[in-house]
Simulated scan of single mutants.
Amino acid sequence: MDEKSDEFINSLSTQSSVAKFSHSDRGIFGCSLNAQKLVADQCIDGGYKRLNELRMRAVEVSRARKAPGRNSKSELIERVQDLKVQLHLAHQENSRLVIALDELIDLAVRMAGSEGVKQKIVEREIGEVTLRFGI
């Protein structure tokens, strides 16, 4: 957003500041509140009352966007459900990885056989891997 857009959003706080807002590059010129009411009643379905309702709604939306983390209850419930599904999938994937790691350890032990040097190297490496993964 440009500076004028920020200025307009800030002007939404009161009816008179919206009336006074101007942006000559876009052909928007300030006027008195009475002039704004007169033009709104002539040009907008619902007149000035509708214009003011739209202004107040824009203020609400602007505040909601500036306040991160403030979601509706239904949005938060949906987010919690999504996170539960993601957590369940992560648990499943971790279980598969642990099983695969166990199978690889068994294979390494079998391949090392009972020969002293190979077996000691494999046992040391397995010890480091299981320590790293907390198994």
Rank of each mutant, 00 (worst) to 15 (best):
L87A: 14
G116S: 13
G30T: 08
R55H: 02
Q92G: 04
R55A: 01
E93N: 11
K37D: 02
L54H: 03
S62E: 13
Q81T: 07
A100Y: 05
Q42G: 11
R57D: 11
R110D: 07
R57F: 09
S74Q: 14
G47Y: 07
D45Y: 04
L107N: 08
G47D: 10
L54F: 04
I77W: 04
L104G: 11
V59K: 12
K66I: 00
N94A: 13
E93W: 00
V98F: 05
F29I: 05
I121Y: 08
L76G: 04
L54P: 00
R50E: 11
V117S: 10
V59M: 10
V109A: 01
D106I: 08
V59W: 03
C43H: 08
E78G: 09
A64R: 15
L51M: 15
V61N: 08
D82S: 11
E103M: 11
K49R: 12
D45T: 08
A40R: 01
L38Y: 12
R57E: 14
L101G: 01
K37V: 05
G47S: 10
K49A: 13
E125W: 03
C43Q: 13
R110P: 00
R50I: 01
C43K: 14
M111W: 07
V80L: 04
R65G: 10
I105L: 08
N52P: 01
S62L: 00
R79N: 09
A35C: 11
Q36H: 09
Q36E: 06
G116K: 14
K120G: 08
D41Y: 01
F29P: 02
V39D: 02
L89W: 02
